[in-house]
């Protein structure tokens, strides 16, 4: 069963000067229950916008976003609020996501206060305590302010808050990119363990390909708000077919000497997301482009069972 379905989702933003930014353009994808799907791309590729569309923090201009079979646009504000209990979110900035004026206990129990108002304070306290232990924090930490914690501890508090309503989906918006390497490994292991224990589905937004390779089942590659390639992690990262994915991968060093990523540098700068291109968004930078590429939108084509690529020459 697919937990999330996006069908032809578009989302634009209007800048104060009136120009329109095409943040997410005609994106369709599904996330199956119990899997980890990574959304990768450079900054400005629309990754975070996609996350916020799934969270219901943003509404699509057109297209359909469905969670657990329910289309978000058909729900009332109150139903969307209730739905929020089913989705947790962990942000990139460990400290900025926590209210500096609330103690850790109050931060973690807040979703309970919102969604289970009849729960007694003592019951809430016990659940917070149990969850803090589950994310490897001393329950005593509930009485402290987030400023007094390390970045790794703050991120664990964020994770505890995301999990307290026992959500089915957790959106991880670059949750490890501002952490030290050693802490990063611990947090990733924690995500793995929590997924096992709770049967979670992760939507993992990242630009760190090494982490994605280790962590996710499926990969979706975004470029200028469009999906250019998607499929199982092994296929997309080991045999990338889209020239953009190949360039993205060649930009990192592989630890596996048997894998020599094709070196296909892109030329030029990424075009502005304020310009809506008719054909392939990579036209002008692509090493293998043909005149055909600029003519019409390029649909995702299935190449190898579940490996899909939006490239005429792949």
């Amino acid at each position: 069963m697919s937990l999330i379905e996006l069908e032809h989702v578009h989302r634009t933003f209007r800048r104060p000067d009136g120009t329109v930014v095409y943040a997410v353009h005609d994106v369709s994808l599904t996330v199956a229950d119990g899997t980890t799907v990574a959304i990768i791309g450079e900054s400005g590729s629309g990754k975070s916008t996609l996350g916020r569309l799934v969270l219901g923090l943003l509404t699509p201009d057109s297209g359909r976003v469905a969670f657990e079979g329910k289309t978000l646009s058909t729900l009332s504000a109150e139903e969307i609020r209730r739905q929020r209990a089913r989705i947790g979110v962990v942000f990139q900035e460990p400290f900025e996501q926590l209210n500096p004026r609330l103690k850790v206990g109050a931060i973690v129990e807040e979703p309970l206060i919102i969604h289970a108002p009849n729960l007694k304070a003592e019951e809430r306290r016990q659940r917070v305590s149990a969850l803090l232990q589950e994310v490897d924090l001393d329950p005593q930490i509930a009485a402290r302010y987030p400023q007094a914690l390390s970045g790794g501890q703050q991120q664990r508090v964020g994770i505890a808050r995301a999990l307290i309503m026992q959500p089915s989906l957790v959106v991880l918006d670059e949750p490890t990119s501002s952490l030290d390497l050693s802490v990063r490994a611990q947090i990733l292991n924690l995500f793995g363990r929590l997924k096992q224990a709770r049967g979670l589905t992760y939507m993992f937004i990242s630009h760190d390909i090494t982490t994605v390779e280790y962590f996710s089942d499926h990969v979706v590659v975004l470029y200028l708000g469009r999906v250019v390639e998607q499929g199982p992690t092994a296929k997309v990262l080991r045999q990338p077919r889209h020239p953009y994915t190949q360039a993205l991968l060649s930009a990192r060093l592989s630890v596996d000497p048997s894998v020599s990523p094709p070196h296909l540098p892109l030329t030029g700068d990424p075009p502005s997301p304020t310009r809506l291109v008719s054909g392939c968004p990579l036209v002008g930078r692509c090493p293998i482009e043909t005149p055909e590429c600029a003519r019409a939108p390029i649909a995702l084509q299935t190449k190898d069972e579940d490996h899909r690529v939006a490239c005429l020459r792949a």
Partner: peptide
């Protein structure tokens, strides 16, 4: 971010 987090949790 903490305001966004509060909105995301349904506050």
């Amino acid at each position: 971010r903490f305001i966004e987090a509060a909105e995301a949790m349904g506050a």
